[in-house]
Amino acid sequence: MTEQNRTPTTHIVSVGTALPGEPVDNAQLAKVLGVNEEWIEVFIGTRTRHFARDLGTGEVRWTLADLCAQACERALAGADTDPGEIDFIVLGTATPDSLMPATVNNIADQLGLDQVPTFQLQSGCAGAVQALGLAQTMIASGQYRTGLVIGGDVCSKHLDVHRDLTGAAPSDLVNFVLFGDGAGAAVVSAEPRGKAVAVRQVLNRFTGLGRKPGQVIEWFGLADRHEDRQAVTEDYKAIEEHVPVMAVEILWELLGELDWDADQLDYLLPPQLSGRMTRKITEQLDVPTALEISCVADTGNNGNALPFLQIEKLLTQMSAGEKALAVAIESSKWIKAGFALEKI
């Protein structure tokens, strides 16, 4: 194959992240919610998280667009890339600021970008991987050279911290301690410049046919906003049962597609559900030669920001020739996702 006809490889050139405000530890959260601090530490295993709204007043301090724009600016600076070089923007989120306009367009506006294709994929923990997969397809087409891939969520908008949680169902209560807010962005390019890593494979597959959702986030409009339905429902038992099994399946499927052996992996980016669940999943993945890259115990589960927080840590450690594999699972309607990176 000639150089001219070769399919361009997608490279992650740099990553930027944004976490709102100071970290909120379990003692602070337990006091606000009126729950047991020890229960949070034992059952969830997450130490701190960040919130885009003030826990005391409920005031929104950062929108999702604000956090994503901050992450993009940091990624652009890290890649020494002018915003005018960006050919497209893809956002993955489960919690857009509004149904319309699309949050991705408000991000573009904050960055001063115009006349570029924008895409918003509404998805849970797989959204960032889906966004990366779309970016890879666009760069592989040869029509686009450089883009922004963004993932972020502001989960706190769905949680009323002043609500009386006495007698709350576990599927309801868990959401108040599991999630956090944040955003991440990557500059992706056909050019292997700077400290780039090559995207070798992206997996994204719906596997939820006939299966009950493991998580539901409701949208309340004017007609139903005062109904008693939970805003967020988590079937934590189903997640505990199925996610570790799915993670192992994703690991071996990606290794098979790449013709890599498990002992060739230098780094492993496991699913970031909670500190406790991540430890359990990593044990079942059982890749002792690979260094685990995790962040959820300190950031909380901030959804589509998590892969970027992991990659940001990864990029400070990878050396030429090293390989990394990431596993992500969306339990809302069961999506297998993941990607493989190689330092060139």
Score class of each variant (00 low, 15 high):
310 Q>C: 12
148 L>Q: 07
182 G>E: 05
304 N>M: 08
98 S>D: 15
262 A>T: 10
255 L>F: 08
243 V>D: 01
176 F>H: 15
176 F>V: 03
122 Q>C: 11
129 V>K: 04
260 W>E: 07
292 E>C: 13
277 M>A: 12
12 I>N: 04
315 L>V: 06
298 D>Y: 11
19 L>C: 03
323 K>T: 03
85 E>A: 14
149 V>G: 06
37 E>N: 12
338 G>P: 01
39 W>Q: 09
237 K>G: 09
167 G>F: 09
64 L>D: 05
30 A>I: 10
32 V>R: 15
258 L>G: 04
286 D>K: 10
28 Q>V: 12
292 E>V: 14
109 D>A: 15
325 L>R: 02
280 K>N: 10
181 D>T: 09
44 I>F: 00
7 T>P: 01
290 A>N: 00
306 L>C: 06
120 Q>H: 07
64 L>F: 07
247 A>G: 15
161 V>A: 09
293 I>N: 02
236 Y>M: 10
170 P>Y: 08
113 L>K: 05
318 M>N: 05
72 C>M: 08
185 A>D: 07
143 Q>V: 02
59 E>Q: 14
151 G>M: 04
156 S>Q: 00
250 I>K: 01
283 E>A: 15
224 D>H: 12
192 P>M: 08
324 A>P: 04
210 G>R: 10
63 T>E: 10
222 L>H: 14
62 W>I: 00
69 A>Y: 05
85 E>Y: 04
280 K>R: 14
205 R>M: 11
335 I>R: 08
211 R>A: 14
222 L>G: 14
316 T>C: 08
227 E>Y: 09
302 N>I: 07
160 D>M: 09
310 Q>W: 01
251 L>G: 00
225 R>D: 09
236 Y>W: 12
260 W>V: 08
49 R>M: 07
327 V>A: 05
64 L>N: 02
133 G>Y: 02
34 G>L: 11
285 L>N: 03
51 F>R: 02
93 T>E: 03
151 G>Q: 03
176 F>I: 03
263 D>P: 03
67 L>T: 00
266 D>N: 11
303 G>A: 07
133 G>C: 06
40 I>T: 07
305 A>Q: 03
320 A>Y: 13
234 E>C: 15
190 A>V: 05
18 A>G: 00
211 R>L: 15
266 D>S: 04
304 N>A: 13
204 N>D: 12
31 K>T: 14
4 Q>D: 10
40 I>Y: 07
154 V>Y: 02
58 G>H: 04
327 V>P: 04
153 D>M: 06
130 Q>D: 11
237 K>Q: 13
175 N>V: 05
234 E>Q: 15
218 E>G: 12
251 L>N: 00
281 I>H: 00
121 L>C: 02
166 T>R: 15
115 Q>K: 13
104 V>E: 01
166 T>D: 12
77 A>N: 11
